[in-house]
Design a protein around this nucleic acid. Structure first.
Lengths: 199, 199
DNA sequence: TGTACATCAGTGAACGCGCGTTCACTGATGTAC
DNA sequence: TGTACATCAGTGAACGCGCGTTCACTGATGTAC
């Protein structure tokens, strides 16, 4: 069969999307080339027509995961002013839903400890994604804050740490209660009082 | 050769210690049975005289890692009153040294994202370790704090998250500066002012 | 208009390798008689 | 006191399996003449 001009690119996109899910769910070492190709409806032999190596796929998958995750949050905060966007972000991030679905969640929470063990391409993709998220959050912080970038990084560390820790708790109900607590603490650090308005 | 009464236990201990280091450094899937046995000066064939499976070794390794890490911090805070112990803990945890040496550091920072993918034995060992650390920190928090356990968990999430994030940064100097920032923010959440005394 | 050839995404068998696990064996020493 | 046997931590070869990677091939269609 002969394919349309965009066919190969579409196939690649399908493969990368499947990999982005699988990598977050099972980790870079937990996914196989054959498995990803099968999820995209193909056989493993065609893989190297799209990617030079598995590492290149994982790097592309991480880029895609950050892109999709950013898009999700962008939609969520569309049209909101900075304080409202910040609150909406925390309310969506530090939740049982995020805990339960690493495959469509933030790559930081899903892959933080895997990362130092990855190759340079993967690390570069991850680092870029982390910086992007920090920058977005910094932009929402009050302008009177002396170091918005540093506070944003610290908030990302806490939010991702909270979700990752909650995933280690086997009792889902207890994890949910703890996430609600953690969310309240994070929002208070963002400058919101208990009622939800920023001081 | 015939061995002393304690010989087998000593061998097991050696294997577990080697595994505790290797697991934190390369992750549960990154270590091999043969490699660990070789580090303990043995051949892989003898492994199953000590452990029923690789998972059992990883679980034992995680227990050992939490135990050793706890002991380290116990020595560090020995004889200090609660506020001083809290400060000493943060000062030791959120550092470039900890960033650079996952193999002798906190298992939470080293393994958080690997954990949800592990089997029940490993998860149980990890969860017990997490609870132990949270309890220790909660005990150092001011008694007027309304929910010490919850604040302690939140602090653990932030500290582990900060170290894990710093490991993703390729520039060691920038990571060091960021860790110093993060450390200051964490200590301020613990109730210390910039001069280091608790209000 | 018809025929031969080029193109190229995808197929599926095969490769080498490392891993977790199994198992028959070793060899030094304690013990039973 | 001497001999045969039991014990048991550790050895090393072998197993089956899954993985990343390679490669000759397929088959549908566009193109050159």
């Amino acid at each position: 069969m002969r394919y349309s001009d965009t066919h190969k690119q579409e196939t690649r996109k399908k493969v990368v999307k499947a990999a982005a899910k699988a990598v977050r769910l099972r980790g870079p070492e937990g996914v196989g080339v054959a498995e990803i190709m099968a999820e995209a409806g193909l056989t493993h032999g065609g893989f190297y027509a799209h990617f030079p190596s598995k590492e290149a796929l994982v790097a592309a998958a991480i880029e895609e995961a950050f892109r999709a995750s950013a898009q999700r949050f962008e939609k969520l905060t569309e049209g909101l002013d900075a304080p409202a966007a910040l609150a909406a972000f925390a309310d969506a991030y530090v939740t049982p839903e995020h805990r339960a679905h690493p495959e469509r969640g933030c790559p930081i929470a899903a892959l933080s400890s895997d990362l130092p063990r990855q190759g340079p391409q993967v690390r570069a993709a991850y680092e870029a994604g982390v910086r992007g998220l920090i920058r977005r959050i910094a932009g929402w912080l009050p302008t009177q804050e002396p170091d918005r970038e540093s506070l944003a990084a610290s908030l990302v560390a806490e939010m991702a740490g909270a979700v990752a820790l909650s995933r280690a708790m086997s009792d889902a109900a207890a994890a949910g209660r703890w996430l609600a607590d953690a969310r309240a603490r994070i929002k208070s650090r963002m400058g919101f009082d208990a009622a939800g308005s920023q001081s």
